[in-house]
Design a protein around this nucleic acid. Structure first.
Lengths: 228, 228
DNA sequence: CTGTTAGCGCTTTCAA
DNA sequence: TTGAAAGCGCTAACAG
């Protein structure tokens, strides 16, 4: 591995001048600049990003905790997040949620220095948040929010629930049932709320029979649907 | 940010003892160990992975250059690679290939210190390889291989081409056409080869009419198929 | 088992 | 504009 020190030696300048060529080239004498750039090429020099991160306390990378890619939603979001981050000069460390053991992911994420964290698939009262706050690491949720007020980006789930319900009602259906995931996920809370609102506005009763909470596994949904 | 130095001070030990508690706890006096661990908790200490990487010259992270997730194949591979890496203590920096401008991805990848690179969606004579070799960064390809002998993991595309062709022939079809992607991708070279072999073994002629190379876009395929 | 010391490769004062 | 020097937070000899 050739370091800036090596470049400096070969180019006959100080190591700090090499550093300046990288960071503030305009403050370097034209000739020395050329000489240094040339030497870098010859020696195949690549600045060490780790060393830079250490002093700048900035890694230019962010962690993404995503839901599973088998859900097309996360295909879209992961792709966009990765590509946009790249465009802005950031790398993305991707992690996939691990049902039943998110703690190991949190541990993993906290162990690395990142400039920020983007998380989805987080529970209403997930234990990672107190930790994140304590460690003072910037983070933002998407597709979910937490019980406490924190930054998040989410679609309007209540409205989504309303639209779906209104659609069916508009088709003159009389027997509508809501099947949603657990209310520990805000996504489902909202959609249920939208369903409930529209149903009641139209004088339908919402009962345990036509509003079912289940988990999001195929089997569970199949079982619930079997009852109708 | 609290550092190991802070912990050392508060615990009344040297900084190297704090480091030892992290790395070789068995070589630390029981009492001091407890004291240090406790102090870490109190001060909310997290070891700085950047500093560690700098001295160990190991980042415990790998870069993945993947094809687009809209292709289910890459959903599977990305998921597996990320999860398995995690299990082995590695982080994954995910990048998606950028048709027409992979250079910017290569630049991006090279700029960060990683312990190795996994790449797919690489062309037969992609310019990243000379660079990788020059920089002496470990890498492996999957789903593709390069013109030069290098490490790769790939399915047996020739066999795949054979099986598909034999299947159709077994069904007594007489008019079989091969439509594949460009031969700059080894995947297609192999499949074509399998097709060709079986066809010729069965005394069918392979011509420009029944073997077509196209690109992998929906439109291109549609157009080719329109001709039959 | 422990502390002192050097040093990883860089950025950033500070004087010159 | 430049170089010398300090320091980011850690690991790794080394001597005791």
């Amino acid at each position: 591995m050739t370091s800036s020190k090596d470049v400096a030696k070969h180019a006959g300048v100080s190591q700090s001048t090499v550093s300046r060529v990288l960071n503030t080239p305009e403050k370097v004498d034209r000739n020395k600049y050329e000489k240094v750039v040339q030497t870098m090429k010859e020696l195949n020099y690549r600045p060490n990003s780790i060393a830079r991160s250490l002093v700048k306390k900035q890694t230019k990378s962010i962690a993404l905790i995503s839901g599973p890619l088998h859900n097309p939603f996360f295909v879209e979001t992961t792709t966009s997040i990765v590509n946009y981050s790249k465009q802005r000069g950031y790398n993305v460390n991707v992690h996939f949620e691990n049902f039943g053991d998110n703690m190991s992911i949190y541990k993993d994420v906290l162990e690395r220095e990142v400039d920020g964290i983007i998380l989805s698939s987080i529970l209403y009262d997930d234990p990672i948040f107190p930790e994140l706050k304590k460690q003072n690491i910037p983070f933002i949720m998407f597709n979910r929010k937490h019980r406490e007020p924190m930054n998040y980006v989410e679609m309007d789930n209540v409205q989504a629930g309303r639209i779906a319900t209104e659609h069916l009602l508009g088709l003159n259906h009389q027997n509508i049932v809501y099947i949603g995931g657990p209310s520990t996920m805000t996504t489902f809370q909202g959609r249920y709320e939208g369903f409930r609102q529209v149903m009641e506005e139209n004088d339908f009763e919402v009962t345990d029979h036509n509003a079912r909470m289940t988990n999001t596994s195929e089997e569970a949904i199949r079982e619930v649907m079997g009852g109708y």
